[in-house]
Each structure stands twice: as C-alpha cells, then as structure tokens.
Design a protein around this nucleic acid. Structure first.
Lengths: 210, 210
DNA sequence: AGACTTATGAAGTGATCATTCCATAAATCT
DNA sequence: AGATTTATGGAATGATCACTTCATAAGTCT
C-alpha cells in the first residue's frame, strides 16, 4: 500500500462496478470505450488504458469479478452439505433475485453474453461460453449427487433433468431482460421444483432435510 | 413484373437469406454493412442502400422474414384444431429442430436478439422484444385453452406453467448456441412435457388425442 | 531538494463505421 | 433512335471506433 507515483484520482473498484454495469447492460461489442471511460468517472482515454489495459482485458477482469460477486448465487450447487434439491432451489431462487435486483441490470451477464459476438472476438465469446458450461456442469453434478444419495430415481432420465435446470436458468435471464416481474420468475422456479419432485423415487417428493 | 430500368444483378431473396444468416449469427450491432453487402453477393454500397434502404430497415425486413419462415415452428400453438398438449410439444420440438438445423445458425434469432443492444438502438431492440412477448402470449393462450377444455387442472398455477414453456424455449436457444447436441435439447423437451402431465387432472397425463 | 514513479489532460493515430454522390451501364417505353 | 428509369462501381462523406503519444502534474523515495 501507499505505492510511489501520483495516485489515481478515481476509485478503481467503483470504476469496475460501473464498467460491469455497462457490459452487463449492452454486451461487450455494443459497449464503447468512450462510454466506459465516461461511466467509470470521466476518465481520460490515457487513464483508462493505463489502469485497465484494453477493452478486452477489462472485460476479462469484469467477467471474473462478476463470477466472484453475482455468480455466487449458484454457489449452493457446490455446497455438498446441502440436500441436492434444496441446493438447486436455493441457486435458482438466488439467481432470480439477483437478475431482478432493482439496482442492477436485469438478467445474467453470462447468459445474455451468449449472443452479439462477431467472428473477430470469438476467443472472448468462448470465455463466456466456458462459464456457462461450468454452470451447466454444476447443475448436473448436483442431480448426480441426488441420485447417489437416493433422492432421485436413477431409472429416470436424470441427465436431462440436470440440463433442464440449466435451460430454465438461461431462459429466465431473457425474461428478466424483458422486464418480467420477479414474482412471475419465482413462480417458474416453483414449477421447476415440482419437476424435481416428479423425478423422486416412488413418485413422491424427497423431503428437504436441510 | 418486368419493370423498367436496369435489372438488379443479384437475387433479392437469396440476398435476404444471406443477411438473415449474418444477423442471426452475430446480432444486429455486431454485424456491419460491409459484411452484409459482401455476404449478400458482393454488392456495392450503392446497391445495398438502393435495394434495402438502410441497415435498420433491412433488419426489420429480416425480422419479418424470419417470423414468416422459421417462426412457423411455433404455429401449432395457434392451431386450435390440435389438442393443447400436442400443440405445445409440436411447437417445442419443431423449434429445437429449427434451432439445431445443420445449415442454419444455431439458436433462435428472436431469443438471442434479447441482448447486445446499445441505448442508441432501443427502438429496434423493442421490436424484437415484442416478438418474444407474442410468443410468450401464445404459450399462455395454449395453456388457457387446455384448462378450458379440461386437459389441465384449473386449481394449479397454470399461468406459471405457460410461462415455463416460454422459459424453456428461450433457454434452449442459448444452449443451441453453445452447440449442445440436438438430442440433448430434445430430451429437455421430453422432460418439459412430463411437467404438463403432472399438471393434468387426477395427476394423470391427458391423452394426446390428435 | 532532487531523483524517481505513476497518473492525467489534450491532442492525434489509422481503421472502420453507416451512408451518400455521381458518372455510367443496362434495361423498358414512346 | 431517343427519352426514361433503375442499378452499378468507385470514390468520398463525417462520425466514431479502439488505442497512443507526450508533456505535465502529483505523489513517494533517498
């Protein structure tokens, strides 16, 4: 701390938050460096590049930051102390709340980042796609765990069920972006959890023993 | 037909198809007029503007064309001669096939068109959003019809069920864009239809009397 | 105080953006 | 044939793109 040289005149963290907001709202390609610099505190072009490297490098940092902060909504999926059904429900509900928070852009940056990429930025688009793939794998792992524990019937198509949760989460992002009210999206989550119950052994709901 | 003046040297229809492909693949903002003109048959800039007006006007025409051609996957939803359950399943399955067709861009132009818009093109983005809203309404109407006919239990949350189908369809678009194999997406549809059955009266599946 | 380090403001880079102009080409109409 | 109409190729428009250069400002270090 207290490094040598002239101190920067803006707060780097809040500048990152402003940048995240823009990328989240508009996507990578539709967001210009001028917009970014302005929103991040009326930075000069020189300050922007000195502090963040380039638009692409900034986006990569933002993506990491997004995962670290807002991606935590899906953390329950990896929490093996939670009963799998509760893990899935908590993840979906937390994500819906995040995606419809009044002070943040609607939808999920990672989900909505699936489109709007030209060939020129294919590498960066792939980076976001990998994040989606990891989320997908988390849902599947959680379902697998449920089967292992006996909470889901191994005879049913559990692979499809895992993918189904991912599908719903992604779809909710577009609906959140379309400004559907939070309550409606929460009802979709409730309906989705009914589906889990219909996959439970003996056709009965696995108790949420959390 | 056979109007006066020099005839154009390219086929307008196939030029439109090439433009649709680009917009579908990259989105509106990430697609440049140079890319369009090149893909549409190495048109000169002058020819492009003479024939299609502007990038925005072209996109509006493409959107209409997309709905007329590929949007027909959802036509079963409005076909009241079909049992509602079959209508939904046919629509979902036809859309998955369309979204994973080997000779077309993956995913749905309308669904993936939810992101990548800067403030400057808000009007155009709203146009695509309206299309999504119409599709949403079609699913709901189909579910309402099922309730009216007695195929779904009116006591259950049928509004959420209608929205659920829309959610799944939108989510499938992102997964198709992520190149998930068609078979997996079809399994998601199968799982989704199980959900319908769990909403049926007496907890039993409504027969597909089609 | 003076060397050193980092940040800033202003101006400018070439490239590309969507779009237009204009002379000419290629068809139909009288 | 000549007038009219539409399309084309090529060059050019100003705006904006991501990014750089550079002199100067504002700190810490010895």
């Amino acid at each position: 701390m207290a490094r040598t040289g002239r101190p920067r005149s803006f707060d780097r963290e809040s500048a990152l938050d402003a940048a995240m907001r823009l990328f989240w709202l508009q996507g990578y390609e539709a967001t210009t460096v001028s917009q970014l610099a302005a929103a991040m505190g009326k930075l000069s072009s020189a300050s922007f590049y000195a502090a963040f490297g380039s638009k692409e490098i900034l986006f990569r940092e933002i993506l990491e930051r997004y995962e670290a902060i807002h991606g935590q909504a899906l953390a329950p999926l990896s929490d093996t102390t939670l009963p799998p059904r509760e893990a899935v429900e908590r993840a979906l509900r937390a994500s819906v709340r995040m995606q419809t928070a009044p002070d943040l852009p609607t939808g999920c940056l990672v989900a909505l980042g699936a489109s709007g990429w030209s060939e020129h930025n294919a590498a960066l688009a792939a980076c976001v796609a990998e994040t989606r793939a990891r989320n997908r794998a988390s849902f599947s792992a959680c379902v697998d765990r449920a089967v292992a524990v006996g909470d889901l019937d191994p005879e049913s198509n559990t692979a499809a069920l895992g993918l189904m949760f991912d599908t719903v989460l992604l779809g909710l992002s577009i609906e959140a972006r379309d400004r559907l009210p939070r309550a409606q999206l929460e009802e979709v989550v409730a309906v989705t959890m009914r589906l889990w119950d219909s996959f439970a052994p003996q056709g009965r709901a696995a108790a949420t023993r959390g």
